[in-house]
């Protein structure tokens, strides 16, 4: 098992390097210009100088090398400096965003709190609703609850967030005036009152986002549950005269949890990716908004770094999912891989 885990981790290194190369090359090839958003009154010669000052003129392989060095050496050092108060990275050029002329990583770290609060909370809420809904739907297949649950989650899934978000704002912020439509990223939770303020401003974005998560996860849980309820050992358990609750929780749920947990783990990196549309509508300004504004502004260092970090998360989540799979299911451990 340990050697398997090590092998997976070792394999991840070349894979990540390959991903870094692909991302860099793809974004490099894309047309677009960080100067495109400037007013037309700024003459072309000045634009050319501005590009040169950003190092855009350098050839791609030099910038790729620099980027890798900054990503894997300078930025971790800067992070350590921040945490430990040292100054290892003081003299090195950090990764600089073309829009803000500030270090890319600082901005990314700045965006983490609101991303985790809103997108993460939406994920948690989604999971907490989806699991019971999925389990009950599966146990009472074809019942009214199952039918209604399926219908509601599907409707939730099929409404694009840019519509449900605006609809929620019009109803709850404009008509009823209950909840804020704009998320205040500078709000600090210090006491009970500020905590309720934080809760209130999270309600709408979390609601819109968790609609999507719930729909997908509850469908998946229901399917996994149905699958295990039809297995022979569940029939045996029933035949032995165990109570329905014991059958469902002890045999059905435990076994269907394996794939469900995997799916939940694999979805986690998406939390860090933010939710581009929902963030934009509620002005949460998390990582998703950072990514889309960087794309629109042609800010390559920012786009490359965010997408690469996302890729790292996904690769790690994949490994973690595989390993838990192995831990939970001895059959797989024998073969080495599911």
């Amino acid at each position: 098992m340990l050697s398997y885990a090590l092998r997976r981790l070792l394999f991840a290194v070349p894979a990540l390097l390959f991903i870094a190369l692909v991302l860099f090359a793809l974004l490099e090839l894309a047309p677009g210009d960080p100067m495109a958003q400037l007013p037309l009154t700024i003459p072309p010669e000045v634009r050319a100088d501005m590009r040169a000052a950003l190092g855009i003129g350098e050839s791609a392989h030099i910038r790729f090398g620099k980027w890798l060095w900054q990503l894997f050496a300078v930025e971790p050092m800067a992070l350590a400096d921040r945490a430990l108060g040292t100054d290892m990275a003081a003299d090195s050029q950090r990764m600089i965003s073309w829009q803000t002329r500030g270090p890319v990583m600082d901005t990314i770290i700045q965006r983490l709190p609101q991303t985790l609060w809103v997108v993460g909370m939406a994920y948690v809420v989604g999971v907490l609703i989806a699991l019971p809904v999925g389990v009950i739907s599966a146990c009472r297949q074809h019942s009214v609850f199952d039918q209604a649950g399926t219908f509601v989650t599907m409707v939730g899934y099929s409404v694009p967030p840019f519509f449900s978000g605006v609809l929620a704002i019009v109803i709850f912020s404009v008509q009823l005036g209950w909840l804020p439509s704009i998320y205040d990223t500078t709000h600090q939770v210090t006491d009970w009152h500020s905590f309720t303020v934080q809760l209130r401003q999270m309600v709408l974005p979390v609601m819109v986002l968790s609609l999507q998560t719930t729909a997908q996860l509850s469908r998946y849980t229901r399917a996994a549950m149905l699958d295990s309820l039809h297995q022979d050992y569940v029939r045996t358990a029933r035949a032995k005269g165990l109570s329905e609750t014991a059958v469902v929780l002890g045999h059905g749920l435990r076994n269907s949890l394996i794939p469900v947990v995997t799916v939940i783990a694999l979805g986690l990196p998406q939390v860090f990716g933010g939710a581009i549309i929902t963030e934009q509508i509620f002005k949460v300004n998390g990582l998703g908004q950072l990514l889309i504004t960087a794309i629109q502004a042609g800010d390559l260092p920012m786009v490359q770094t965010i997408t690469f970090l996302l890729a790292v998360m996904v690769v790690l989540a994949n490994i973690a999912a595989d390993l838990t799979y192995g831990l939970l299911d001895p059959r797989i451990r024998q073969e080495g891989r599911p």
Partner: peptide, 22 residues
């Protein structure tokens, strides 16, 4: 399967944007 993982790892929106522009 590693290729599949890799594709799962690539973020969709930037990829689509790049594809659209290219």
């Amino acid at each position: 399967m590693r290729l599949t993982d890799l594709f799962l790892a690539l973020p969709v929106i930037p990829l689509v944007l790049v594809a659209v522009m290219l």
